[in-house]
């Protein structure tokens, strides 16, 4: 039995993250993490006719890059697991339809990177695959068009709002090989604390992230201090503050080793992104471009990566329903400093 608690499983052998690739739009490239991304586009259309097709191109280009960085070919990949925010996940499906790899489509809203990495690692650990390609994408313009208003409409964004990241992040998971390893997975439950404000997603998702952290620490007997880095997906400044407060009440101290990908990816002041970045790509590209190299070099030896998602639709919001949140946790061990192999 690999289960070590109510929500946590320990993989019998760690699953290696063989490669990580990130492709982003111009705003992300201008941000504080700009220099870390693999591919950057000059405009959000990426040479396509529509925002939706542009998102699919981000997916295709980046998925191919991830495979290439792992020194593999697409026929070496047993499964591809990915998802996005667009209706029926067409951002993903149209992006990977030419890759010719068996596909499981996922929807976990902005937690999709965590969901895909969790399931991919389980597929490998279960002995069903040698290589799994997992990823997640989002596109600011396509998301605005679907969830909010047409872009040319002159509206003000409230200070609690977040900015959807344009891009795709993808990793190749492998049974064998050198690289950072996924060792444990804590799967989140849906938590709905009654927040209905679609302009305050961080507050809507924070309880799910806090519940996941608590479940993880209880299942493993660890504390936040056992990790070099803890990163939630796209809670932004307000959501992070709420998670710290909620966990404090449970007796766990989250200090400055805890950050949120939505805080890291944009400079809120200069880039006018208010509470921070959001979207499936937020945690995906931040992990691939920023945390993965640190795990590889041993700067981070053990991290808890927790993509977060808001599971609502425009219909549910218009019908006055509150926003259910979800979070998926992965424990990833980096390479030891100075170790020849890892």
């Amino acid at each position: 039995m690999k289960r070590i608690g109510k929500q946590t499983v320990r993989l019998s052998e760690g699953v290696t993250i063989l490669s990580a690739a990130s492709t982003v739009g111009p705003k992300e490239a201008e941000g504080p993490l700009g220099k870390y991304f693999d591919q950057k586009t000059e405009d959000s259309f990426f040479g396509e006719k529509s925002w939706e097709l542009a998102e699919s191109k981000f997916v295709e280009k980046n998925m191919r890059l991830a495979v290439q960085k792992a020194n593999l070919k697409s026929e070496d990949i047993d499964y591809i697991l990915c998802g996005d925010l667009l209706n029926q996940c067409t951002g993903s499906t149209f992006g990977i339809k030419n890759l010719d790899i068996p596909f499981f489509g996922l929807f976990g809203a902005c937690s999709t990177m965590g969901e895909s990495m969790s399931l991919g690692a389980m597929l490998i650990d279960g002995g069903f695959a040698n290589h799994v390609l997992t990823g997640a994408s989002s596109h600011f313009c396509a998301a605005e068009k679907q969830f909010r208003f047409p872009l040319p409409l002159g509206t003000q964004r409230p200070p609690t709002s977040t900015w959807t990241v344009t891009g795709d992040g993808a990793v190749v998971l492998a049974r064998k090989g050198d690289g950072p390893k996924i060792v444990e997975i804590t799967t989140g439950k849906i938590v709905d604390m009654g927040v209905a404000d679609v302009n305050n997603m961080g507050a809507a998702m924070a309880p799910a992230a806090a519940a996941l952290l608590k479940a993880h620490f209880e299942d493993t007997g660890r504390t936040p201090q056992d990790y070099d880095a803890i990163a939630t997906g796209d809670l932004g400044t307000i959501g992070r503050e709420l998670v710290v407060e909620l966990l404090g009440k449970e007796g766990y101290l989250l200090d400055n080793r805890y950050t949120d990908c939505g805080i890291e990816i944009f400079d809120a002041e200069k880039q006018d992104t208010h509470a921070g970045g959001s979207g499936c790509a937020c945690s995906a590209v931040t992990f691939c471009a920023y945390f993965y190299p640190k795990l590889l070099s041993g700067k981070i030896e053990k991290m808890l990566f927790i993509p977060t998602g808001a599971l609502m639709s425009t219909t549910s919001s218009q019908q006055g329903q509150s926003i259910p949140g979800i979070a998926h946790g992965l424990v990833i061990e980096g390479c030891r400093k100075g170790a020849e192999e890892c």
């Binding site: 200070p159 609690t160 927040v195 305050n200 709420l242």
Partner: peptide
């Protein structure tokens, strides 16, 4: 619990200028 959380959210969320 939801009410309590709503108060926390209100405190943590900046108001519009």
């Amino acid at each position: 619990g939801q009410q309590k959380y709503a108060e926390m959210v209100k405190k943590a969320s900046p108001n519009s200028p």
